[in-house]
Amino acid sequence: MSKLKIEDLQKINEKVRQTMLLREGNGRARITVHMGTCGIAAGARKIMDTLLKIIEEKNVKDVILTNSGCAGLCSREPMATVELVGEAPVKYVDLTEDKIHKIFVEHVQDGKIVTEYALAVGSERTH
């Protein structure tokens, strides 16, 4: 490893910031994928995987991804809840890879709720 210059410190910081935010548990946005038995059967793993890929591709640093148990609405799985800091959580249902893509870009990144896929706003605490 070569000696660091002033700018390098910042670069290293950025490189690991995502991991640190995850560990501190305070990102700007939190996406919870519901992974009960029903969710997994309906394809929640796929949604989780897609989200991880998007985050990697877009090199997003401030989004936290977690899973939770069955949300009690098994017929509408797979489901995910998006929560931006300071805003009410939004629950999305009947997800597909394309839908979650759109939700990520519009809601998580740009802050606009994708109403056509949303089930309810602020109906529940995710954690």
């Binding site: 995502q18 991880l52 990697e56 991804l65």
Partner: peptide, 10 residues
């Protein structure tokens, strides 16, 4: 780098 969704801090 692909992110992890959880870190288990042992």
């Amino acid at each position: 780098m692909r992110p992890f969704r959880a870190n288990l801090m042992i």
